[in-house]
Nucleic acid binder design. Sequence first.
DNA 1: AGGCAATAGTTGCATTAACAACTATATTGG
DNA 2: CCAATATAGTTGTTAATGCAACTATTGCCT
Lengths: 156, 156
Amino acid sequence: MDTTESNSSSHAKELCGKEFIGKPISYLYRYEQIYIGKKLEPYGIGSGQFPFLMRLYSEDGINQESLSDYLKIDKGTTARAIQKLVDENYVFRQRDERDRRSYRIFLSEKAKKLEPDMKKIASEWEDILFSSFDDSQRKEITNSLEIMFENVLKIM
Amino acid sequence: MDTTESNSSSHAKELCGKEFIGKPISYLYRYEQIYIGKKLEPYGIGSGQFPFLMRLYSEDGINQESLSDYLKIDKGTTARAIQKLVDENYVFRQRDERDRRSYRIFLSEKAKKLEPDMKKIASEWEDILFSSFDDSQRKEITNSLEIMFENVLKIM
DNA sequence: AGGCAATAGTTGCATTAACAACTATATTGG
DNA sequence: CCAATATAGTTGTTAATGCAACTATTGCCT
């Protein structure tokens, strides 16, 4: 990969010798979708529902707004993902009597039984990503990614 | 792919107390799409065309298969992205006379003039991601992400 | 030469996701 | 209390993307 790039700004210069960081991030996202999607096939759901399910394992009974806020996913996308989870009997909605605009989302028994399966899928994906790193590097990288996440949050 | 019980369950435990690595990766990908998409609006193209344009700045005249291979993006997606770039006069196709199945993709003068603009968009995004890191950490993180990319490549 | 597998590209279809406009409920300020 | 505003959720539209089926060309093998 020997490329000669013209660098007409100080910023462009940084990009010259190496990859754009967007490339591995895009790749890791897209292939996680494929990997998780395949693993979820036997369960009748898709990769788009996975983050919501994982979030509910941590905090059952929260509403769609909270899910959207936490995952930073559009509330329309959240509405449709939850609908699919309802259709497949992974969660059910319950009107919040304190605020009748919102629904609280609860895991079904079926979903609760599958929690170990779901967490195993997540951790196996992590094991692939980190297969060449030791636990200390793993922590370091995870931490760096979360800081980058915060850096973007600050300006969005 | 290693899916042994001991390995994954020990890591599944780690998943309990902290974030799934997929969360920041997904976020960084989705918000890059939004950020780049907005920056590209004045140019009449979308975030989906950006990686192809960037790749062509490094290696002009390659074919769609090479673009797909390098970016690890489906060839159907590549076909449609290149079509949009053709429609907006950023690139043109030229039949490869040595292999008439393929087209070589070349940057137009318009695209060449905009190379500094495009690289500036890319590097400004990187500056946001890395805003709390020094150059050495930046290199370290970039390198780690590329290794994770390779780790996934190995098994896909 | 003829046939068959591989390669390059296109297109239909499905999923994920953002954005915007909309409904319904809640809250706040006169 | 009512009007204006804010919040929770839904839905239509669009873009990016992967997969699979298809066409066309190439190259290999007997």
